[in-house]
Computed example of a mutant assay.
Amino acid sequence: MSMTTHTPLRFVAVGDSFTEGVGDNDLRLPNDCRGWADRVAEELARRQPHTHYANLALRGRRLKQIVAEQLEPALHMAPTLVSFHAGGNDLLGARLDMRAVIGGFEGAVARIAESGAQILLFTEYNVPLSPVLEPLKLRTAVFNKHVRRIAAAYGTLLVDHWCFEKYQDRRMWAPDRLHMSRIGHEYMAKKVLEVLGAAHSLGSPVLGPLQPRTRAEIVADDAAWLRRDVAPWLSRRFRGVSSGDHLSARWPALMPVVLPERLGTSPEPARL
């Protein structure tokens, strides 16, 4: 797909925290985050002034919720481009019906394809949570195999996140180890724009060598992560609630893209 300056673009982003922008903190924006989808929309709008954008994604949503809550509102906007990311929260579940998740995913892609919109899909990354959770890698690999098959079958665009080696660097991830950091979202935006064939001004992160950590520092960091991030997540799972239950979609209707230079004050500094 090559983005031209002559085609009015209606870009609708559908999904979970990955697409909502969690980890890319910006207190000037709805839900206090920005994310790769906003950054992609900004780059497109700078070159295509008639670009409109909506982002319906919400953190914590599983595949069935995304399909039930976001798909029809997205299609009602008659989008020309739909990004669809779903299934990541399902893969983290204690009990997983992989066949049902893959079937639901493919059904959603088929429904979007019927609308005539161009579709942008993503593979999942082997998020470096903890060595204890290494078995999740097998689930992710199986899921990604089917995402690639579905992308080929329906002629969608595919951002193969699994293959991006830069995400092996922990600085590409937020402190919760589950969501991308600001630079992670910036790089994802660059890779999405490359897949779209769109001109842009984004560069690759220059991180430099990682400072080695002592065993004591690693243990302390793991303990802080378990207390700060894992314990609340497990509590929510036990209670059947989500971190996104009190939130609404960041950009719930198609509208001209809000460029960051027009927002005034600076975003929250990145924490690397």
Rank of each mutant, 00 (worst) to 15 (best):
M1Q: 00
M3A: 10
H6S: 14
T7P: 01
A13D: 06
A13S: 14
V14S: 06
G15T: 04
F18Q: 06
G23A: 13
D26C: 07
D26R: 01
D26L: 09
L27C: 01
L29K: 09
D32G: 04
G35Q: 05
G35A: 07
W36A: 14
W36Q: 10
A37M: 09
D38F: 09
R39M: 15
A41M: 05
A45E: 11
R46D: 02
R47T: 14
Q48F: 00
H50D: 13
T51Q: 05
T51V: 14
H52T: 13
Y53N: 01
A54M: 07
N55W: 08
R62Q: 05
L63F: 07
Q65G: 10
I66D: 02
I66Y: 04
I66P: 10
E69N: 10
E69R: 12
Q70G: 03
Q70F: 04
Q70E: 13
L71C: 10
E72D: 15
A74T: 04
H76T: 14
M77T: 09
P79T: 04
T80S: 15
H85D: 03
H85R: 01
N89L: 07
L91G: 05
L92W: 00
A94C: 02
D97W: 03
A100M: 00
E106N: 03
E106A: 10
G107K: 12
A113Y: 00
G116I: 05
I119H: 09
L120Q: 00
F122Y: 09
T123H: 08
Y125T: 01
P128Q: 10
P128D: 07
P135C: 11
K137Q: 11
V142F: 09
V147W: 07
R148E: 12
A151R: 01
G155D: 09
G155Q: 12
G155V: 12
G155C: 10
T156E: 08
L157G: 14
W162A: 15
Q168W: 06
Q168D: 09
R170V: 14
R171A: 12
R171E: 06
W173Y: 07
A174P: 00
L178W: 02
S181W: 03
R182Y: 03
E186L: 07
A189E: 08
A189K: 01
K190L: 14
K190R: 15
K190W: 13
A198G: 04
A198V: 03
H200N: 14
S201L: 11
S201H: 09
L202K: 02
R213K: 15
E217G: 04
E217Q: 14
V219I: 15
V219K: 13
A220G: 12
A224S: 13
W225C: 08
L226V: 15
L226C: 12
D229G: 06
D229Y: 13
P232M: 02
S235N: 12
R236G: 08
G240Y: 05
S243T: 04
L247F: 04
A249G: 11
R250T: 10
P252W: 06
A253N: 13
L254W: 10
L254M: 08
L259W: 08
E261V: 03
R262V: 06
P267E: 11
P267A: 14
A270C: 10
A270I: 08
R271V: 15
